[in-house]
Write a protein that binds this DNA or RNA. Structure first.
Length: 460
RNA sequence: GGUGGAGUGGCUGAGCGGCCCAAAGCAGCAGCCUGCAAAGCUGUAAAACCACGGGUUCAAAUCCCGUCUCCACCUCCA
């Protein structure tokens, strides 16, 4: 089965076919580095990392994936001012945190262009739009430049909006002709740092948000590229405006649009005003990055995913079941190959090809785990299932959690107690054995008896 | 007001005309294992009347009409 993708511009499923045979260009809107990442950032990152992985591993395509960094923005300047720090330092620091988080959840992207490195590209694009009659410098002498939405009849095509139905800006000023015209270039303000302004034909200023992505996609992926992705909340106005600008400039722009669903808490979208945001740190305290990644894949990428500690706990359990199998099977089987496309079960392949149907793919994964466990219990060699599971995990970007490092002193004490308990059990002194077990539990150590030995791990 | 999305077992969450007397996970129950546990593994019940009311069809969770409820976007947001 060929890959089917839900194109959120057409609002329907269609077969995926790259513009250039064998290659895929993918642009995903990355974070505005204004404050620490939250669960929503992770969801988007993982959703599109899975897209890239499947294109690479499942379809042997050469994927060029871009995730930009918006490092100049109103919010960055405001937050920096509030914290009395340099805005560039804030942006840099926040970006470091984002990169760490992306790496820990195995969703890093190599191409990470910064808006501030593409100011010249943006100015060039704005000039092109003006020359084509789709943008204008504000007539009030403010130095702002706006996109002329009225000049572009297709405006609203991405989200099926008619300009007259939009609520419209309360403040249709700053030199706008029409309320739905949006800023391409914002004139420097007196109360903002000089470092946040660049020279331009319209005076000193900085780019509007939307033009950044239009300029960067063009600079890095070209005037036509395969897939544009981002969070559902970016569809309007951000992506609508990107599309209008790029098309008005004469570019083909994205061939497919993909939007990931949002993360809610108690059925409501996370937002600062509601104070229900869940930080990445809070999340990682509840489970390994693998378990979090599993949780993010447990619902289809286009649906809303509700956060709750219980749901995370479920994912931790499910992930540990899979990892247990890999550990058990690896001890019995010599399969070392990490990924083999031929080892992917057909239901898994079909699920991934059906618009990245992760829940069904995970069901296929569990089916292989169960079959492998059954083979193990029957004394057989689970090589086939292990190969399948390892290959699926590779596609899913999941790994087997490594044991946590513990200090030697503790290890020695625990080892000694376990030895004493073993001796007691050999003497059938079960009261003493249980007493030692309780003692270990109080130390925060849980032991597990297997037929041949006793293993232990730290709680929590 | 406009534009989209969603309502499926105790919970999470797939399926989107026939293979659905509805996937998978979690929880429950039983068994294996164990000195006993825990952990692990295996198997499995239930009234899931697929929000509600109509309709189309040989056939509907899936399509159509109506109703109710919830969510998102239309300001910055992944």
């Amino acid at each position: 089965m060929a890959l089917q993708i839900f194109d959120s511009k057409l609002q329907s499923i269609r077969a995926f076919s790259p513009l250039e045979a064998g290659r895929v260009s993918l642009y995903v809107c990355g974070p505005t580095v204004q404050s620490a990442p939250h669960v929503g950032h992770l969801r988007s990152a993982v959703a599109f990392d899975l897209v890239a992985r499947w294109l690479r591993l499942g379809h042997a395509l050469d994927v060029r994936m871009v995730r930009n960094v918006t490092d100049i923005d109103d919010k960055i300047l405001v937050n920096a001012a509030e914290q009395s720090v340099d805005w560039q330092a804030l942006a840099r620091d926040v970006e470091v945190v984002f990169n760490q988080v992306y790496e820990s959840i195995n969703a890093s992207v190599e191409l990470r262009p910064h808006a501030t490195d593409h100011i010249a590209d943006m100015i060039e694009l704005i000039e092109l739009l003006i020359s084509r009659g789709h943008a204008y410098a504000a007539t009030d002498g403010s130095g702002n430049v706006f996109f002329d939405a009225g000049s572009w009849s297709a405006y609203g095509e991405l989200t099926n909006q008619k300009p007259e139905n939009l609520e419209g800006e309360a403040d249709a000023s700053h030199g706008r002709i029409n309320p739905h015209d949006f800023a391409l270039w914002k004139a420097a303000k007196a109360d903002e740092p000089e470092s946040a302004a660049w020279p331009s034909p319209w005076g000193s200023g900085r780019p509007g948000w939307h033009i950044e992505c239009s300029a960067m996609t063009r600079a890095i992926l070209g005037e036509a590229f395969d897939i544009h992705g981002g969070g559902l909340d970016l569809r309007f106005p951000h992506h609508e405006n990107e599309l209008a600008q790029s098309r008005a400039a004469g570019f083909e722009f994205a061939n497919y649009w993909m939007h990931n669903g949002l993360v809610t808490v108690g059925g409501q979208k996370m937002s600062k005003s509601l104070g229900n945001g869940v930080s990445v740190k809070e999340l990682f305290d509840q489970g390994s990055a693998n378990a979090i990644r599993y949780w993010l894949g447990s619902a289809h990428y286009r649906t809303t995913l509700d956060y709750s500690p219980e749901n995370i706990a479920d994912a931790v359990g499910a992930m540990s079941r899979i990892q247990n199998f890999v550990k058990r099977a690896s001890a019995k089987s010599s399969t070392s190959q990490k990924f083999n496309a031929d080892a992917l079960p057909q239901p898994f392949v079909d699920a991934m090809n059906n618009d990245f149907g992760l829940p069904a793919a995970l069901a296929a994964l569990h089916d292989s785990v169960r079959a492998g466990n059954a083979a193990l219990d029957a004394g057989g060699d689970p090589a086939e299932q292990l190969a399948s599971v390892l290959s699926m995990l590779e596609v899913l970007g999941l790994t087997v959690d490594e044991a946590v490092e513990v200090d030697e002193e503790l290890a020695a004490r625990v080892g000694s107690l376990i030895e004493q308990r073993r001796a007691a059990r050999d003497n059938k002194d079960f009261a003493l054995a249980d007493q030692i077990r309780d003692e270990l539990q109080q130390m925060g150590v849980t032991i597990e008896d297997t037929p041949t030995q006793t293993t232990w791990s730290l709680n929590g």
